[in-house]
Design a protein around this nucleic acid. Sequence first.
RNA 1: GCGGCCGUGGCGGAAUUGGUAGACGCGCAGCGUUGAGGUCGCUGUGGGCUAACCCCCGUGGAAGUUCGAGUCUUCUCGGCCGCACCA
Length: 854
Amino acid sequence: MNMVQYDAPAIEKKWQARWAMANSFAASSDRTKPKYYVLEMFPYPSGRIHMGHVRNYTLGDVVARFRRAKGFNVLHPMGWDAFGLPAENAAIERGAHPGSWTRDNIASMRSQLKSMGLAYDWDREFATCDPNYYQHEQLMFLKFFEKGLAYRKESWVNWDPEENTVLANEQVVDGRGWRSGAIVERRRLSQWFLKITKYADELLAAIETLERWPDRVRLMQHNWIGKSEGARVKFRLSSDTVPIDAIEVFTTRPDTLFGASFIAVAANHPLALFLGESNRDAADFLVECARLGTSQALVETAEKRGFDTGLSAEHPLLAGRKLPIHIANFVLMEYGTGAIFGCPAHDQRDLDFARAYNLPVTPVVLPPDVNQNEFKIIQEAYTGPGKLINSGDWDGLDLEAGKQAAINALEAVGAGSAETTFRLRDWGVSRQRYWGCPIPIIYCDNCGAVPVPVKDLPVTLPEDVDFSKPGNPLANHPSWKNTSCPSCGNAAIREQDTFDTFFESSWYFLRYADPKSALGFSKEAAAYWLPVDQYIGGVEHAVLHLLYSRFFTRALSEVGYLDLGEPFAGLMTQGMVCHQTYQDRNGKWLFPTEVTRNGNDWRHCKTGETVKAGRIEKMSKSKRNVVDPEIIIESYGADTARLFMLSDSPPERDMEWTEAGVEGASRFLKRVYRMANDNTLPTIGTPPPTDGEGMELVRTTHKAIYGMSQDIEGFRLNRAVAQLHTLANAIANTKGESPSIAAARRFAVETLVQLIAPLTPHIAEELWETLGHQTMLADSTWPTANERLIADNIIEIGVQVNGKLRDTILLARDCTKQEAEGAALASPTIIRYLEDRVPKRVIVVPNRIINVVV
RNA sequence: GCGGCCGUGGCGGAAUUGGUAGACGCGCAGCGUUGAGGUCGCUGUGGGCUAACCCCCGUGGAAGUUCGAGUCUUCUCGGCCGCACCA
């Protein structure tokens, strides 16, 4: 046996250089080959890769290398989602310029990624903060604007009065700005929107066609779009002391109209705002609601609170019935019409509200098999099916018929009609930030909002910006915003907002198809490469990024860029990488590198103090339960890190990073390394045996090829790793020196090296060379399983008596049911179990199981 | 609140989708190799009863459907995730 040591760092550097020299992973321009587009969600260049990246890109790399070996023309690119808030925070906190900070980060992350040995076509790399990238989206925006897909309207934002800036929901903590601590206000700002709601129905319907997406993501998108069918109902105000004569309400339950006992409007409903101007108490209540924030989860779990306006509205179908109008904290202006009618008997929120404010509760739906006299609503609203009661002519109708009757009745009196609403709202793309793509619009006192002429694109960001003053640096810049109106020539000012960074990520997958194109991308390249065959990323993007991208491909198609509906044919959402947490006795979080373990005793490496080992949680800087991929790669090698990432848990599930697991992966690679360095193996070119003692190993090898291929295609990569272990065990367990066995061992080892290549490419490439090959494994084709050799001729079958396993017998594969039954009943063990009883039935599932029923 | 996911050995997880539960790995134990430790190799490892076999129990809990349930149905307990400006 050759005693060569597995030197991962040396091997990895060697093959990374060779692949780069040969440009091994460049996508070919040959359009006759079948294509395969593998894409991982591109990273924000935070400066260092973390284990989540390692997992994401390893998964993508396995797919890319596997497809390449299967003969596809693979596109597997990488780039940088380079605009965003952290760069501005760095500028504020450390005085770094966002541009140079970002470029430095990209440089260090690129070299970290390269050390992982990922099969990227690096020639297609780009960063979205480069004007060469964002100029194209400025043109896209102008085309959207031309077509009415982009428009301006006022909307509400979280405003930090101290920093003079708009805050993201996550930057609002307990109603205060995260950095300033100032109480956040809600403000109306004029902002740009993209008309995603135009495609609401289509985006919803097409979810059905996304067969290779996880169900949960499809469901989340379905719920996000939130289509509701119901009716719009107009309630006329009883008095004319306010300049509003009716409140329009959207309801999914027009059938419960006779159970209405109040009207509630959102705190930012026009009526509420009007009252807030003249009524001190109302104003106070509105301020209180504003403090609650905009998140639906908060709104719906908060205590139901309201303000009685003293006004009332007429029931549209019941002459003389007056409904009091309240302002309520649980009504959202953003959904429906910003006003509801409350039917406490059949909606829990309405009931909670009615109990708190002493409003009547009239049941109008009687559950099946319940006596009307006994039916009482106490603390729980009834939302199930039933027949209408207390509803005049509609009594006795089921709910569907009741809805139709209600709509007919409303239409007859001109008080309403059927309506469908969506939860989905248009996408606000304006951000009051510096580090984003400038919105190419000029405001002129005479001409209004005028597009920047195409010849003047791109509108680039000024470099000399000052982050020491609060507010948007673009707005604070002394001269950048001053320009002249393209249409009348008068002095005018530029739009100072930039795009939401989801704008960049909504079309980057198209840019990769043709990254040097002067058009952004050519129609021809997009037609060949798109859709993405396999997209991989975190489930945190399940809704927004993916939905915006789906919208973008449609919108870009509408304005002539391409002809595509769905951008991502296959989607895999990977789980998080977790690690145990540690705290010292003061509760301070400790890094795993600061802790040593001895059985169940955890101690601080330096002080020797006892450490509390806590829950296994997602790796996060705040809890310090992070492991730096760079250190793992330096000490064990990228192949070990990659292998462990794939080994233990299914890709879609959360995994736990453990030292023991890394050791295990490393051990396996060393074992494979030794197997291939066995100098007793026959020379290259020795064919696998066709008979003799070696056949069992040959068959096992074919089973491994088959299983591995199936498992990679099905993304069962933890099982794929298990296949490799099984094959390695079989090689180790095959003893003997006969020519048949030696030839089989050579075949098995060589195949093992091929099969492991998508997972741990460096060691595979090295061993391929060790085994005598002159060409690179990266250029060789995937082995094919001989199906004839996979199926065993004799199989072991379980025999049950009354469903309990009692014996196993050996049977010829695909034998007849009669033969199987005969063999089972002839088994001495089964005879003993049957005693003298006569089998009533014998169920034979061919090649699976036999069940004797007595 | 609304919607969803997950509960299988000491641990991560397999189970051809209703057909022999626990593949593969980690851990642990024993033996061998080694100057010792580690590496490496072999063997064992769900629980109970056993000298061993046999047998009994076993997929969070309870019921149901079925010849047969980890898998399907209903209820229940526990853990986790998402809900519109972080990326």
